[in-house]
């Protein structure tokens, strides 16, 4: 049975119909990608799953629990999210220690010391970072802290919203490797949202292409590598990700 089941999801913000009937299933331990350009509704799908955007129509179930307006404490322990901009996702006045100990305090963990140190080690930061403030860290280091914060509750599902698009290429590689390793070690389930087909191809076994709030098509990694896209839009995306080709004329 699928761990995450999204069927006919609609999200409306007042007049704006951001997601128009998207369905997909993600199995336990799978890494699923959502690709699209800005305004395609790809991030809104993630936000609807985690409760930051309303589910206007349709059903979303995570581990058999159908999600309503209110999310249980257990839900937060099962599912966590990493945001796009590491400069905006950490509280500017909280030390790393505070960032990591807060979720433990909310959920009443007792061995906080050990868990914080383990989380720092796991994301490759080391203990020297524990009492620093976010402004003392680089973008990549901040994103590692955000990953540690998400992992410290030992969730089964991680929602990754463009986790590397604000980072330099070399830092992106490090963070992608970290996410890959953590998934292998902990058997995590990922839903990764990105505008970069190469990142999704590298990280995910299956992916959904979205445009204008609708699903265009679902592909496997093998399809993508074979360039076996059925829809024109996907083919455009694939062509664009190759870089610039001067020979082609637009008219």
């Amino acid at each position: 049975m699928a761990l995450i089941d999204v069927s006919d999801l609609h999200v409306r913000f007042g007049e704006v119909h951001a997601v128009r009937g998207v369905s997909f299933r993600v199995a336990e331990g799978e890494s699923y990608g959502i690709v699209g350009e800005s305004g395609s509704g790809k991030s809104t799908v993630l936000r609807a799953i985690c409760g930051l955007a309303p589910i206007s129509e349709g059903r979303v179930t995570v581990a058999g629990e159908e999600l309503g307006r209110r999310r249980s404490a257990g839900f937060h322990r099962r599912l966590q999210m990493v945001f796009q901009d590491p400069y905006a996702s950490l509280h500017p006045r909280h030390t790393i220690d505070r960032v990591l100990s807060e979720p433990l305090a909310i959920h009443g963990f007792d061995d906080r010391e050990a868990r914080i140190l383990r989380a720092l080690d796991e994301v490759g930061l080391g203990r020297g970072f524990r009492f620093r403030y976010p402004h003392q860290l680089s973008g990549g280091q901040r994103q590692r802290v955000a990953i540690a914060r998400a992992l410290i509750l030992e969730p089964r599902v991680m929602l990754l919203d463009e986790p590397t698009s604000a980072l330099d290429a070399s830092i992106q590689a490090e963070v992608l490797n970290l996410l890959d390793r953590l998934r292998a070690e902990r058997g995590l389930t990922y839903i990764l949202v990105s505008h970069d087909l190469a990142v999704v191809a590298h990280m995910c076994e299956r992916l959904l292409v979205m445009q204008h709030g609708q699903a265009v098509e679902e592909l496997t990694r093998a399809d993508l590598r074979a360039r076996a896209a059925r829809e024109t839009y996907t083919r455009d995306l694939l062509a664009a990700s190759e870089g610039y080709r001067p020979a082609e004329s637009i008219r």
Binding site: L52, R71, F83, S89, H91, P92, E102
Partner: peptide, 26 residues
């Protein structure tokens, strides 16, 4: 609506905790 407040919500923090611990200091 900033991401660090969203992150706190996602961790299951209560409104009071967010108001007191995250919003007020800023």
């Amino acid at each position: 609506d900033s991401d660090f407040i969203n992150a706190a919500r996602l961790q299951g923090a209560s409104s009071l905790r967010i108001l007191w611990g995250h919003v007020t200091p800023l």
